[in-house]
Design a protein around this nucleic acid. Structure first.
Length: 416
RNA sequence: CGGGGUGUAGUAUAACGGUAGUACGCAUCCCUUGGGAGGAUGUGGACUGGGUUCAAUUCCCAGCACCCCGACCA
């Protein structure tokens, strides 16, 4: 992509209205644009990151047997009346068209359960793991913290269907592992705690994935002895660590990047989602649900990985793999840059090419702000040595590489 | 939903009861290329409504929007 054509613009100053670093940086660097509180446009840079996060999540969901579908955002009122949540849930966006009333879906138990009912008849149809990556709507009383709390947001929601609690339990463990794998790939695994939680309407106990971060809205308590984390509600109820019985906790601010629930029969009952077991008896399907907000995950990454100059994207979700920056007006530099750019494209390397007529300072400032993992500079100095200079955004490490070896260097960098 | 704050150009800001100035951006041109260079010319602005006043961007009230704190968060 030629930067001169990119549909976004970096800003010299941080937006005045924003206090959270994720929003400040993402807006200033041209990844997102705010339409209204909690509602954002994703520009090419931001959308690329979002799609990469989506890809990671999709891969990990498919690895545990998930089948991807797409459910609508527009839900008939009746489905929500069946579970009683039409009246219970305060954050619903409700709308009326003529006499017909709808909900903009904040989650999809009300849709997936009756849908599954059309397919699940026998124990032979189970288990099933169905997920989607789709837009959710929640009328938060107070949208805040930028992408951390949106009113409309992309979410991966996985629903699982089982013949027994035991089977649900074992799949639940698999999802935990898949989630940690996802967080590992966006490089926040070390800061992410599996946290005992309660207090939900869904079930007595659930787990949250909480990423330690000062910008977080949640407070978690981490056992100093065994590192088990619990949330505030649990902390209020108990004295000792439920895992090791140790007694001292460290309090941390955290962002809930994922959650997993054992729904049991909570939704299969109202929708009468049953199956015939081996013994010919009709039984309720055991369900689980598992969510990850993509925008929130993106914002969490920015909150954790940035410096004074800008964002530092983890390799796997860097909007581009390499930021090619030619310096100097010399014809040979421009020509070489164009040639390298075309070769990179041919090699299917994602490249942002700063072909703008800007001074080196401006190009570098924008480059650091945008935070692509690898910078590739071509200048008189490097060209005299038939080389380009690579700089890793994360470490600042510099390396001069002969031009014919540049593509291998990039591939190698991303292979590690 | 309660409390507080802020609304001036695309962005960041200044002054002012007498209708707005600067920087960056953007456009054209000159010049310039290893860390937001310089010059010239141009472009572009008071959230909305009401009140006070001879006169309101400025003071007062209401609404709206955004931000923050709290409550809420299936």
């Amino acid at each position: 992509m030629r930067q001169s054509l990119l549909f976004s613009r970096t800003q010299r100053k941080f937006p005045q209205n924003e206090t959270f670093i994720n929003t400040k940086l993402l807006i200033r660097a041209g990844f997102i644009d705010k339409l209204s509180a909690g509602v954002f446009n994703f520009l090419p840079l931001g959308f690329r990151v979002l799609k990469k996060i989506e890809k990671i999540i999709r891969e990990e969901m498919e690895k545990i047997g998930g089948q991807e579908i797409l459910m609508p955002a527009l839900h008939p009122k009746e489905n929500w009346q069946t579970t009683g949540r039409w009246d219970e849930v305060k954050e619903l966006f409700k709308l009326k068209a003529g006499k017909k009333e709808f909900v903009l879906g904040p989650t999809h138990e009300e849709i997936i359960t009756p849908l599954a009912k059309k397919i699940i008849k026998s124990y032979k149809d189970l288990p099933l793991y169905i997920f989607q990556i789709q837009e959710k709507f929640r009328n938060e009383k107070r949208a805040k913290s930028g992408l951390l709390r949106q009113r409309e947001f992309l979410m991966k929601d996985l629903y699982s269907f089982h013949t027994s609690k035991e089977d649900l339990d074992s799949f639940y463990e698999k999802v935990k592992e898949a989630y940690f794998k996802i967080f590992e790939r966006v490089e926040i695994r070390e800061k992410t705690y599996l946290t005992f939680a309660s207090g939900g309407t869904f079930s007595k106990f659930s787990h949250e994935f909480q990423t330690e971060c000062s910008a977080g809205e949640d407070t978690i308590f981490v056992c100093k002895n065994c590192k088990q984390a619990i949330n505030k509600e649990i902390k209020n109820k108990i004295r000792n660590c439920p895992n090791c019985n140790g007694g001292s906790f460290e309090q941390k601010k955290a962002i809930e990047v994922g959650n997993i629930f054992k729904l049991g029969e909570k939704f299969s009952k109202p929708f009468k989602l049953t199956f015939l077991d081996k013994d010919g008896k009709e039984k309720f399907v055991q369900m689980g649900c598992y969510g990850i907000g993509l925008g929130r995950l993106m914002a969490t990454v920015v909150e954790i990985f940035h410096d004074q100059k800008g964002i530092i994207w983890p390799k796997e979700i860097s909007p581009f793999q390499v930021h090619l920056i030619p310096l100097g007006k010399e014809k040979r530099i421009k020509e070489t840059a164009e040639r390298i750019y075309n070769e990179l494209i041919k090699e299917k390397i994602e490249v942002l090419y700063d072909d703008r007529e800007k001074t080196p300072g401006e190009k570098f400032v924008d480059c650091d702000l945008i935070g692509i993992s690898l910078r590739m500079v071509l200048s008189e100095k490097t060209l005299d040595k038939k080389s380009v200079e690579f700089k890793e955004r994360k470490t600042g490490n510099l390396k001069l590489v002969k031009i014919p070896k540049a593509i291998d260097f990039i591939k190698n960098f991303y292979a590690q």
